[in-house]
Design a binder for these strands. Structure first.
Length: 1048
RNA sequence: GGGGGCAUAGCUCAGCUGGUUAGAGUGCAUGCUUGACAUGCAUGAGGUCACUGGUUCGAUUCCAGUUGUCCCCACCA
């Protein structure tokens, strides 16, 4: 139970011992009067509650000018409004007000119970509380008899008063609700953490740093399931590290996403106003994009908060912010100065729809059916011709040669001859080039340097002319003669038709081929020669390859390093210019007079070469990945030497999906290595670990996409089931690098788990009479207590190690098993009888194990764990900053745990027996136990059998003489249950025989294994020993079964 | 054309550096109004760990091949 206690000294009862005693007594009746927050108003409050016994333990707000009255840890509020405001941030479902009219009105909305002193002046009647009495939300529960103030001590001698307790009618809850309802809790807790400043770490030389930079979502829209998974995984890691005592920074931010965003805004502009970006102009258009960006990045921020991401919002970054833009310029200039950026006339991927060049990474190849057209090119001055084969006949108008292989006997003589390009009267030469594959097609290739990367190379080798057949708008140029202005696909049909009509077409073969498409708009890419900026990749790739090969950067799972290396080792130069408006404008300036190119971080207005003032900045912007490549250090303030950069760089891990390794991860690696050149390699890498996760698919295993309409909005899930359920569903069973399916079943299982935890906590709280989070003395612990502590202790070790190794799904399933099966289904059940008799040891063990297990679970399910932890006895302000549990020898009671396991095994066996025989639980019977482990099966564990194995009573005996009992055999004991009328002798015999067979099988298997010399000699001693122990157990069981059979 | 993943219960998937009576969730069957939870409890059925070889004392796990399936990369006109 959490309280906010609002106390007002103006109530005038400070000197009335009887009333004060009444207040205290009432408060004591509540189980635990600890509060997360107390609003204390006035001066004599502390005197009113001497020693803090009734007063809340931790006082957060004090409204008093004299510091002498401020309890330790108090915050001073300067007005009641402020106090109310602060108090709202504290988790609370019950609020108490003790006080007079001056405080109750403000606090009442947060109250369920109000202790109120009503004053009556002789001439007035209930002046202050008429509204409360009139309200149908509140009811008067009790009212003391009327007091009259003491004329000697009271300041207002004619005052009469009564002491009243009001309760809120409907919302007064006697206990926590039966099912967990996250909606109200989550928002409140996130604000609480935020206000407390837990998300913002201190740069502390005494602590070890731990940092992650978020893969910045695009500001194009809202987050999808993939983002939810990505950020859940990061948050799990970050929260764990924070609790482990690291100074933990998670930098959030967004990416301006050049092309993607511009297209969205253009689309919006077109739909809403029927305008293009050219209609509104560059400046105005960019304003619109900024508006869009602000709207969507706010939205994204909100979504990240909803799922509980513990990002440091004070260090939020954006790829186009001034600091990051400075980093971009600086990097561009540096690479230019090093000769690693050049401007070149090259074939680039051109999207006629987006009107920009694209990098290779930004095109998607799709297999589409096409044709192979065989076309005759007449040889000048003869009746002969050469037949070429092409998939793109419309580009023939850009042909400037036909190439054959230099050693191709068929065409050797033709090299150097001239051909007439059909449908035109242009003459082109036949050239010889090794590029041509003699086996493919006709062995003759038309060379179109402006429209094909290979042809471009060939053209360069042979000094061929550049003729564009298709323009940037995707329409035919004047070179196409009569087809000028025609769309490129129309032109293909028209060209083929003309060729056919004029007799140039030899044949048509169906031929599927891969065609590049724009990853944004989906249109077919036109390879087009143009002047673009490029990054020379080879020199940058080398150290980036070495860093991974030498293990300075590690992919998890490891196999993705192959992906990365494969790509890096076959890398092409990176086209970084984009003909867009939204992005970092290229910091290059052209002199109109002398043509000099000047690259500079600052604006250039005078040509450094000729002094001309006719300077123009390049119109193009940079590829969006250029700025995101700098993300790990630009977000920490680089190029400034900030304390953040110094302390948090390199970041510790990058968490991302595999589909973005080549796009982004690789670029960050080579950019960081180049930028941090000179640092030792371990300080230069952007991150030592790359934790790769898979994609989130729908229940049928399909990729979630807009066109399929199968996308699930993570926020819908949060609304319906809560953030913790979403996080659980995403984290559970998720293994690194593998895709996962998201289904209703999964989310329901997650919801159920939430509910299970909630109810376990509810049960613990309902039975709690002690206010202590410490473990009882060893001497007081029972076998069951020691068992659960031992289990808990090993859980800590396993979960911690799993998280350390990024086995987040495995760690979670262990937590799930522990909480559900071990803690709830066994420990709570074992402990129930003790709770009924008010055993405090049991309560304290429950609290200890539950609250510490919640800590281990907190990174996965931050909200519910905080909410429950707050309501349990605890130390500290928040589970989020509590200390991560550590394994301890103090918690390890292996011998007792073993005893408990024997008991559990017998109980299980009895239940199974009874269930098989359809004996209802209501039918109780004595359980006689024959065992060699008399110290295990001693009276303290008898209640377990009564409760969990339908025993009416339990007796440990040396042997059971009669034959009227069901016999249940385990390796440590045989239980006899006299249920004579239930027993079917034949069935019983059959079952035992069957069991015997299985056991004998196991024994044989183990004996064979142990008699294998190879095994005994070569297997590790521990393994051999374990097998021996197993064998002994089976032998024990077997003798039990044999004895049982004998008596039948 | 290269590279990689996956193949385990009806379904969805775990199973880390070889030794388990091969697990979970869900579904199925049976029985439970047990003072936290039916979003629950108990019990059970259900698997030649795709196939074939190899390494090993021992292979679901490591290696090779086969089949099926999915993905990534690639400028053969």
């Amino acid at each position: 139970m959490r309280l906010i206690v609002a106390v007002d000294n103006e109530w005038g009862i400070g000197n009335k011992g009887d009333l004060l005693a009444r207040v205290r007594a009432d408060l004591r009746n509540f189980r635990r009067v600890t509060a997360d927050c107390a609003v204390i108003l006035g001066s004599n409050t502390l005197a009113t509650f001497p020693g803090g016994k009734v007063l809340p333990k931790r006082v957060n707000i004090v409204l008093h000018p004299d510091p002498a009255y401020h309890p330790e840890g108090a915050t001073v509020a300067h007005s009641l409004e402020e106090a109310v405001e602060i108090s709202r941030r504290f988790p609370s479902d019950k609020v108490f007000v003790i006080g007079g009219a001056s405080v109750y009105r403000q606090m009442l909305p947060y109250c369920d119970v109000a202790y109120i002193t009503k004053f009556k002046k002789s001439f007035e009647k209930d002046v202050y509380f008429e509204d409360l009495d009139a309200s149908d939300e509140w009811e008067l529960e009790s009212e003391s008899e009327e007091f009259v103030s003491d004329p000697e001590t009271d300041t207002e001698p004619d005052l009469k008063y009564t002491f009243c307790i009001y309760k809120r009618k409907k919302t007064m809850k006697k206990e926590l609700p039966k099912t967990y309802s996250p909606d109200e809790i989550e928002g409140r807790l996130y604000d609480f953490w935020n206000e407390k400043g837990y998300f913002t770490p201190e740069i502390d030389a005494k602590k070890k740093p731990f940092s992650i930079v978020i893969p910045p979502p695009n500001v194009t829209g809202k987050l999808h399931m993939g983002h939810a998974l990505n950020n859940t995984l990061q948050d799990i890691i970050i929260r764990t590290k924070r609790m482990q005592g690291y100074s933990t920074l998670w930098v959030p931010g967004t990416d301006h996403a050049g092309i993607a965003t511009q297209i969205k805004v253009e689309e919006n502009l077109r739909v809403e106003q029927g305008l293009t970006r050219h209609d509104v102009g560059r400046e105005k258009f960019l304003e619109m994009v900024w508006d869009w960006k602000n709207k969507y990045s706010d939205n994204i921020k909100k979504q990240l908060r909803r799922i509980g991401s513990s990002c440091d919002w004070s260090r939020e970054a954006f790829t186009m912010s001034p600091t990051l833009s400075a980093a971009v310029k600086k990097t561009f200039v540096r690479l230019w100065d090093k000769g690693l950026i050049y401007r070149g006339f090259r074939i680039a991927n051109w999207c006629p729809h987006c009107n920009t060049a694209l990098s290779d990474a930004e095109v998607e190849h799709k297999e589409i059916p096409g044709n192979f057209w065989h076309i005759r090119y007449p040889i000048k001055g003869t009746d002969e011709y050469l037949t070429i084969a092409t998939t793109r006949p419309e580009t023939m108008f850009g042909d400037t040669a036909v190439a054959v292989h230099p050693e191709d006997e068929r065409y050797k003589d033709l090299v150097g001859k001239t051909l007439i390009l059909p449908l035109t009267d242009r003459e082109i030469p036949v050239i010889a080039d090794e590029y041509v594959d003699r086996e493919f097609g006709t062995g003759c290739v038309k060379i179109t340097p402006c429209h094909d990367p290979n042809d471009f190379e060939v053209g360069a080798r042979h000094g061929l002319e550049h003729i564009f057949a298709i323009g940037e708008d995707g329409k035919m140029t004047s070179a196409a003669g009569r087809f000028e202005g025609m769309d490129r696909f129309e032109a293909r049909k028209a060209t083929v038709k003309a060729l056919e009509e004029e007799g140039y077409l030899v044949k048509v073969e169906p031929h599927g081929h891969n065609v590049a498409h724009c990853y944004r708009c989906g249109n077919v890419i036109e390879p087009l020669a143009s002047r673009q900026w490029f990054v020379k990749m080879k020199p940058l790739a080398e150290p980036a390859i070495a860093a991974v090969k030498e293990g300075h950067i590690q992919f998890i799972p490891e196999r993705f390093s192959k992906n990365y290396l494969n790509w890096m080792e076959n890398i092409h130069d990176w086209c970084i210019s984009r003909q867009l408006w939204w992005g970092h404008r290229i910091p290059a300036y052209y002199c109109d007079d002398c043509g000099e190119i000047t690259v500079s971080e600052t604006d250039v207005t005078v040509c450094p070469k000729c002094g001309s003032k006719k300077m123009r900045q390049d119109e193009d912007v940079l590829d969006t990945w250029f700025s995101s490549a700098l993300w790990p250090f630009s977000t920490l303030g680089w190029p400034e030497k900030t304390p953040e950069l110094d302390y948090y760089y390199p970041t510790n891990v990058l968490v991302t999906a595999y589909d973005i390794i080549t796009f982004w991860v690789s670029k960050m690696i080579f950019m960081a290595l180049d930028t941090m050149d000179g640092k030792p390699i371990d300080k230069a890498v952007p991150f030592p670990d790359v934790f790769i996760h898979g994609l989130v698919r729908d229940a049928q295993g399909r990729k979630m996409s807009k066109s399929l309409g199968n996308g699930i909005d993570p926020l819908d899930i949060v609304d319906k089931y809560g953030a913790d359920a979403l996080r659980f569903a995403l984290a559970t069973g998720n293994s690194p690098g593998n895709d996962m399916r998201f289904s209703d079943e999964k989310i329901e299982a997650a919801r159920n788990f939430n509910n299970k935890i909630w109810n376990a906590a509810r049960f613990v709280l309902m039975n709690l009479t002690v206010d202590d989070y410490h473990l009882p003395e060893k001497e007081q612990l029972t076998t069951a207590d020691k068992w659960i502590l031992t289990e808990y202790n090993s859980l800590i070790g396993e979960v911690t190690a799993n998280i350390e190794n990024y086995e987040l799904g495995v760690a979670l399933s262990k937590l799930y098993d522990f909480i559900w099966d071990v803690f709830c289904d066994w420990y709570i059940e074992l402990v129930k009888p003790r709770l009924q008799s008010g055993d405090e040891t049991a309560q304290r063990v429950l609290v200890f194990v539950l609250s510490n297990t919640l800590k281990l679970l907190h990174p996965y399910m931050p909200f519910i764990t905080e909410e429950i932890w707050q309501s349990l006895p605890h130390k500290g302000d928040s589970i989020m900053v509590s200390e991560w549990p550590k394994t301890s020898k103090e918690l390890d009671f292996a011998d007792d745990a073993l005893k408990m396991e024997r008991v559990i095994a017998v109980i299980r066996a009895i239940r199974a027996r009874r269930a098989e025989m359809n004996v209802p639980n209501s039918k109780k019977a004595t359980v006689y136990i024959v065992t060699d482990y008399k110290d295990t099966f001693e009276p303290s564990i008898f209640p377990f059998f009564e409760r969990l194995a339908s025993a009416s009573e339990v007796d440990v005996i040396d042997s059971y003489g009669k034959d009227d009992a069901v016999q249940v055999v385990t390796d440590s004991a045989t239980a006899y249950i006299p249920l004579a009328e239930m027993i079917d002798l034949e069935k019983e015999k059959a079952r035992l025989t069957d069991e015997r067979k299985k056991t004998v099988g196991e024994i044989e298997r183990l004996e064979k294994k142990l008699s294998n010399e190879g095994f005994v000699a070569k297997a590790p001693a521990a393994v051999v020993e374990a097998e021996r122990v197993k064998l002994e157990k089976y032998k024990d069981t077997l003798s039990g079964i044999d004895a049982a059979l004998a008596r039948l």
